[in-house]
């Protein structure tokens, strides 16, 4: 590994971190992510969405000949 390589160094200022240009969640968004009541509801919703997707995928897995 020659010396002409660029050596990675931790970004010295926040502005040069890739994270500086990322979208960050606000405090209420973060709070909702672990709020038990909201998450119980989301648990049901996500499960339903996944079941719908599984049903759709199985439906697409068509019979070619009967």
């Amino acid at each position: 590994m020659g010396d002409e390589r660029l050596h990675y160094a931790p970004p010295a200022r926040p502005q040069v971190r890739p994270a500086f240009f990322a979208t960050l969640p606000t405090r209420p968004t973060r709070w909702l992510r672990t709020n038990l009541l909201w998450q119980v509801l989301r648990f049901a919703v996500i499960n339903l969405k996944m079941i719908r997707l599984i049903a759709l995928s199985h439906h697409q897995g068509r019979r070619l000949r009967s």
């Binding site: 994270a19 990322a22 979208t23």
Partner: peptide
């Protein structure tokens, strides 16, 4: 990116690892 930024994880994209030595990745 948002997940990484929130957790203080930095990222490097578009990379092909050429080799790994003890303690160093090229």
């Amino acid at each position: 990116e948002s997940l990484f930024a929130e957790r203080g994880v930095d990222w490097i994209t578009r990379a092909h690892v050429q080799g790994v030595e003890p303690g160093r990745i090229a």
